[in-house]
Amino acid sequence: MDTSNPMIPQPRKIKRVIRETHDTFTLCVEPETVELEKSFKPGQFNMLYAFGAGEVPISISGDPRKPDVWHHTIRDMGVVTRALTNLKAGDTVGVRGPFGSAWPVQESRGNDIVIIAGGIGLAPLRPAIYALLEERDQFGEIVLLYGARTQEDLLFTKEFERWRGKYGVQVRVTIDSAGRDWKGNVGVVTTLFPGVRFDPANSVAMICGPEVMMRFAVLELKNLGIEDRNIYVTMERNMKCAIGFCGHCQFGPSFICKDGPVFPFSEISPFFGIREI
């Protein structure tokens, strides 16, 4: 993006809107041509501006190999996201970004990969999954453990079969609350570990989900023997500027916008779980 004034959103055309679930949708936006060279790294986010309503940080959920379209998967949960919901193909949205740190994809070559996602948390992990599968032979086992509230809240389910079948990813899904028509797992995401194949001594874990879920997931991974420095988590806090000026997203010594949102757990562990930090 134009770094001369990083606070100015660039108006972008919406190419397509994908309805993902009852409250979640994906905005596909065409980036500026000069931005194509830069692309985005899996885990990074954009600030999306809905005319007059405001701006929110939204992680990029698409394929980093196809940087001509930026996917943003958004859950309708506030004023701005509601305004974004109302946008249709052909409308304009303001974009600033991409910002922030990335999942350690290349850095994890030669390892097993354990991905744990909760709810909308699968969105920022999907670009990492695409990047991993792009060079599938560079990695050992790839595990995806995915938890959501109900069957209706599961994202990207159509892709699971391809990831399983074509790439041998161990995809396990569980939901918190199920009716009788659900034949899958019920229970929290950490209950999916038994029976999953990976070598904790040579694994890199990537976690994104509600903070409480991540706390449990980290604990479980540590119990299994994965070291703190090989566990990566994404953090979320209020964010206004995305470039370290507004001060809102501070988490202990870290600015989530520029030092994160992806952190090695070892970097934030002294502050993780402290109340009201």
Binding site: G52, G54, K240, H248
Partner: peptide, 26 residues
């Protein structure tokens, strides 16, 4: 202390919007 927030405003026609940055406090 450098913290700030932003406020988005529109006029009554909805044709014109502005973004203001304002000093904020933790």
């Amino acid at each position: 202390c450098f913290c700030s927030t932003v406020e988005d405003v529109t006029d009554i026609t909805g044709e014109h919007a502005e973004r203001w940055q304002k000093q904020d406090s933790c």
